[in-house]
Design a protein around this nucleic acid. Structure first.
Lengths: 334, 334
DNA sequence: AATTATTAATAAAACGTTTTAGTAAGTAAA
DNA sequence: TTTACTTACTAAAACGTTTTATTAATAATT
């Protein structure tokens, strides 16, 4: 019933708790425990199926081998895919992930940080939202490794990994222009984070560089958590009333709403109307016609995050904040 | 730097650790601590931002307020959506979720169970795979609440929550037959779990009840983790060489592969060829034509799981295993 | 006046580890 | 023959809580 403790093993082997602990932790050699004892204890451990209590271990050592992952919403495919990759890579290095979704709520994000803190996670991977700068700063002051990803907070100096949103957006618009598009719309959200504003900046710069005047009416900013029906209606209005010949959607779910919008009105994607989505989605490959998309290099982002975390964990000194910007890829379809 | 402990609070308030602990845990009244002391201590706690160390707490009390969630793959939308719902509902009741993906590997699943065990999670929610029956039985023997979902293990008596796969499948095939379909195919996977075999049984029974003979050539069993390209090729072969006039895909990712397969060959979904997918997906609503799908009641499943877990957690005695089968819904499109 | 209850608090044990600081016995060096 | 090292092992403290048992003072009851 009750699970075995190190003491039970010690009694069975007729040695001290200390000795068992040394053996468990691979310090037997270093602490000059005899071969005979090592073997005996290891045998007993294997036979009994004893597993050290990680909680007691954490309490004593102060670390948990757990990394906290805070994202916006695990049911969004961008996050679930990256979570899966991070989980995988962390697992291979002996770390577990606890994740939780903020749902874009500052309060929930703060609560999550507190809960991770009181569970003594070893490091934090956060896709942040505005309003938690102070909490993040406190984590760093306390000496915790913290890596932001996807979104960066400008007012705070943290390590960050993300795609080159500005350039990806710039290239997409350039691509439209090269195809001869004149009235290029952008459908984005009204969230004030770098990752989103960069997409707008890329859009503006590409127009400017090609001598096309920026027209505010062609930029639709969707309220970040409104009902999808309203979003669809707004997009329909944008696309019906203007001579729009190309659209960049700043997120994949906006693009999905956009495609739903198009289904209901008389506007077909084709030679005289082009669409690109930011962040790929299974539906785009399947859509008729197939939808072009900007792919963020998920694998590379996850790998970089884990490497940076492990670096910080293994270095005693606090490392300087490091920003890694990874190019995104424009995948043209049909 | 170093975080505050209950001792720091006790010293500051000039009371004992015990007193502080009673106050933190809402036992002040019951233990007849005076109003004055309660106020003083609470003020100090609020001002200092002290948060109890959950690890120490867990070590002492033996529970963690954490529920372990073991699923196949968090990047699969069925699981990520259900994970999100479970997380949400658990959170509202004061529980946190740690999830991890098994990737359909027995070894990884066993490891995960061990890791949850050594972290003393309070309960387990598992979408199981064959081969871990013993480990699950051990969890239950140790008195842990365990709920299986999505898939059930026949050889073991556990609480289970899942959709009525047999009937959903049966209804779908009936629907095809009512439309006059004669050569109805099933594309499924070669995994031997109840949830998948029930879909096959529903298919067979519906044919039988309508006097259509079961034809093995119309059932394609895909190897569960093969390359998608091969899957697509196999589906194409099935659909090209037979006079197939309807297909039920037993999972949403098989349906997606199927739609990709159809894109490449000369077979259009329409009056003389119908398709239904098991488990809905964003892409289906968007596809031209829109794809009919069987929707599992995610919300209801998640809610039932959490209720059952909380029930088991709050009851001292071990409750008998309970199976809840929830009807699924066939959503016909276009 | 002596006993019993109540109130308001606390000391100390326990949870299961890791790790520091030993000890005791044998070996090598002086 | 001391002195110093090495080998093989262990006792006990510490991590930060919760909880049981206890105390001391005051109030209520006989």
């Amino acid at each position: 019933m009750k699970s075995l403790s190190i003491k039970d093993i010690a009694v069975k082997a007729n040695v001290s708790i200390t000795t068992v602990s040394f053996i468990i932790n691979g310090k037997a050699k270093e602490k000059s425990i005899s071969e005979a004892v090592i073997e005996k204890v290891e045998k007993i451990i294997a036979e009994s199926g004893y597993k050290p209590n990680q909680i007691a271990r954490s309490l004593r050592t102060g670390n948990s081998n757990i990394i906290g992952l805070i994202i916006e919403d695990i049911s969004n495919s961008f996050f679930s895919r990256i979570a899966r990759l991070i989980e995988d890579k962390a697992y291979k290095r002996g770390y577990k992930i606890i994740y939780s979704s903020t749902e874009n709520s500052v309060d929930k994000a703060k609560e999550l940080i507190n809960m991770f803190k009181s569970r003594k996670v070893d490091a934090y991977i956060i896709s942040p939202i505005k309003g938690i700068e102070e909490d993040i700063q406190m984590l760093m002051n306390d000496g915790n490794p913290v890596i932001l990803f996807d979104r960066n907070l400008p007012d705070i100096s943290t390590s960050y990994v993300g795609a080159d949103h500005f350039n990806a957006s710039y290239q997409s618009i350039k691509n439209f222009i090269d195809q001869g598009k004149k009235n290029i719309a952008l459908v984005t959200i009204d969230i004030n984070v770098a990752q989103i504003t960069e997409r707008l900046e890329g859009y503006k710069k590409a127009l400017e560089d090609s001598g096309i005047e920026y027209n505010e009416d062609l930029v639709l900013k969707i309220h970040f958590n409104q009902e999808e029906n309203e979003t669809i209606a707004q997009i329909q209005k944008l696309l019906q009333h203007k001579a729009v010949d190309a659209v960049l959607f700043a997120t994949n779910y906006l693009a999905i709403s956009g495609l739903k919008a198009l289904k209901q009105i008389d506007k077909k994607i084709g030679d005289d109307f082009a669409v690109i989505a930011y962040d790929d989605h299974e539906a785009f490959e399947l859509h008729t016609p197939r939808i072009s998309a900007i792919q963020q290099p998920l694998e590379e982002i996850a790998e970089t995050i884990i490497k940076m975390i492990l670096n910080q964990l293994s270095s005693k000194a606090k490392l300087p904040a490091e920003e890694v910007i990874i190019p995104a890829r424009l995948v043209l379809r049909d």
